[in-house]
Amino acid sequence: MIRKAGQTGLTYFLITLFILFTAFPFYWMLITTFKNDNELYRNREANPLVFNQAPTLDNLRLLFNNTNYQTFVENSLKVGIAVVVITVLLAVPASYSLARLAGAWGERLGIMIFMVYLIPPTLLFIPMSQIVSFLGLRDSLWSLIVIYPTFTVPFCTWLLMGFMKSIPVDVEEQAMVDGYSRFGAILRVVFPLALPGILTVVVFAFTLTTHEFIYALAFITTSSQKVISTGVTSELIRGDVFFWQAIMGAGLLVAIPVALVYNLFLDRFIAGFTMGAVTGK
């Protein structure tokens, strides 16, 4: 009895530690956003975890009035949505065919596609910049819309393969016996059952594009075309002056919605990854 209580206590203690560890950056960003310069830089003796002087909204004013922050967010959204649409359109049929039609080769191809994802962008951005120039997309959001699917599609295809394989072939064949063509069966039975996987892919592709940095930095220089990851860092770090409070605020405003969506789909997300792991063994 005592031993069990002790175990439960230990579990909660560890969970609390972990929560503090993961939530701390958010808290730090939040509190920093509303601190004035004087408190942040000069008041060294005071406790940094609380407000010692009155909080201020000046930093957010700077972020919204003196930078293109809203444009960056809009640009990130535009790129994110376009990349998500392209990724879903390509990865869903690709993963279905690899899971169902290609037999043993399907699995090998799936792993090979996943390998593509492992090539780091720091190697790829040089040849990619040539392609972007050739297409005449330099300094345009379209460069990112064209380039980002090169890493979202392979990964999402591999991820969806696990989901597709978990849908019993029987159910699909039953739909074909029940009066539908293969395409009809896919549309009415396979897609609805793969929906959790497709949602995982949507969330994953979107976050992957919003936190991408190297391609965004290499292909876009005009402020009005920048996305959030490059825009905030280039406009709020001027020479060696860091506008820490505004940077924290900019990060926090986009991180919170994404964190909420992640939590909403957490179970699906884990299921997606483990399924992929089994098929990619």
């Binding site: 029987d170 159910v171 074909m176 009066g179 063509s181 609805p192 059952l193």
Partner: peptide, 28 residues
């Protein structure tokens, strides 16, 4: 194709559509 053969099949696993109610399964 199977749909043109006027057959009905019951699989070993029953292959019910998990995302549909019993009504929609039968109506499918």
């Amino acid at each position: 194709p199977p749909r043109a053969r006027k057959i009905a099949m019951v699989f070993q696993s029953y292959a019910l559509y998990p995302h549909m109610t019993v009504y929609n399964n039968i109506a499918f």
